[in-house]
Amino acid sequence: MLRSLKALALALVVGGAPIAADAASDGRGPVTNLPLPRFVSMKAAEGNVRRGPSLSHRIDWVYVRRDMPLEITAEYGHWRRVRDRDGAGGWLHYALLSGSRTVIVEKDRLVVLARPVPDAPGVAEFGLGVIAALGKCLPDWCEIEAGGHSGWAPKSALWGVGRDELRD
């Protein structure tokens, strides 16, 4: 409930600073010209999530998980508005973020498979909340790697990849 209230406060109060629109009319960020929304990951081991896009804005909380996937929903100067898998978020400095893609496993005891077909043999089992590196993605499957194990998982069991996203 507290996170929901913080997210609502973030949406309503931005400290008077001019805030970039969530996406330009063509779905691109006004600063980077990259697609909005888009997924990234935490480069830093710790990042202050602020109420607005500057150091003068209050810190609402701190992300403390390196490689955690986040979704960028807006840009303003060197700041990116992000949200996590729970829908909570705020503004982070771009230097804390990486374009390296990761996902969070959203299913307990997810068996990753040798090939992207339902009857393929399992090669590993990942627990709920595991952060995995994201590789290739097909319409319904993505290749992921964590803890030295890799395999294919259904997109529906992952957060940090778009449902229609394809990756080579």
Rank of each mutant, 00 (worst) to 15 (best):
S54A: 14
G29S: 01
S41D: 11
A44N: 10
P121V: 04
L2T: 15
G162S: 07
R109T: 12
A7M: 14
P30D: 03
V130M: 09
G162C: 04
V123Q: 10
G89E: 05
V161T: 08
A44M: 11
D86P: 00
G99D: 15
V82I: 15
G89L: 04
P18N: 07
G77K: 08
L92K: 11
R51C: 05
D84E: 03
V103E: 09
A9I: 08
K43S: 15
A24M: 14
R83K: 11
G148W: 10
A45H: 13
H78E: 13
V161G: 04
R167T: 01
E106C: 07
I104P: 10
W91N: 08
K155L: 12
L110T: 03
G27D: 11
L97M: 03
G99L: 11
R66K: 15
R50Q: 00
K155R: 13
A17L: 15
D22I: 04
R163E: 11
G127S: 11
W91Y: 04
S98V: 11
D140C: 01
P154L: 15
V82G: 02
E106G: 06
R85H: 12
A20K: 05
P121E: 12
D140S: 07
A11C: 12
I59S: 05
V49T: 12
A21I: 08
P154G: 08
R50D: 00
E71K: 13
W61E: 10
N33I: 00
A24V: 02
L128T: 06
E125F: 00
W152D: 01
A23R: 08
R38L: 03
K6T: 03
G15E: 14
L8Q: 14
I72E: 06
D108M: 01
W61R: 15
P18H: 05
P37E: 04
D60R: 10
K107N: 02
A45F: 13
D84I: 00
C142N: 06
A132E: 10
S150V: 01
A74W: 04
V123P: 07
F126C: 11
R167A: 02
V105P: 01
P116I: 06
A157K: 03
D67H: 09
Y63C: 05
E143L: 12
V31T: 04
M1D: 13
A88Y: 00
D22M: 08
R65N: 11
S56R: 10
R115Q: 14
A120W: 02
T32L: 00
L97F: 08
D108F: 02
R115C: 01
K107E: 15
D86C: 00
D140Y: 04
S4W: 06
V13E: 13
V161P: 07
D86S: 09
L113W: 04
R115Y: 11
T73D: 03
V130G: 05
G27I: 07
K155F: 08
D108Y: 03
W141R: 07
V82D: 04
L128Y: 13
G16Q: 10
I144Y: 09
P118E: 08
R115F: 10
V111F: 00
F39T: 14
M42E: 09
W141Q: 05
A124E: 09
H149N: 12
E165K: 02
V117N: 14
M68Q: 15
F126Y: 13
V13H: 14
A23K: 02
R66P: 15
C137D: 02
E125N: 01
L70V: 14
V62I: 15
A45T: 09
M68F: 13
K107L: 07
I19G: 02
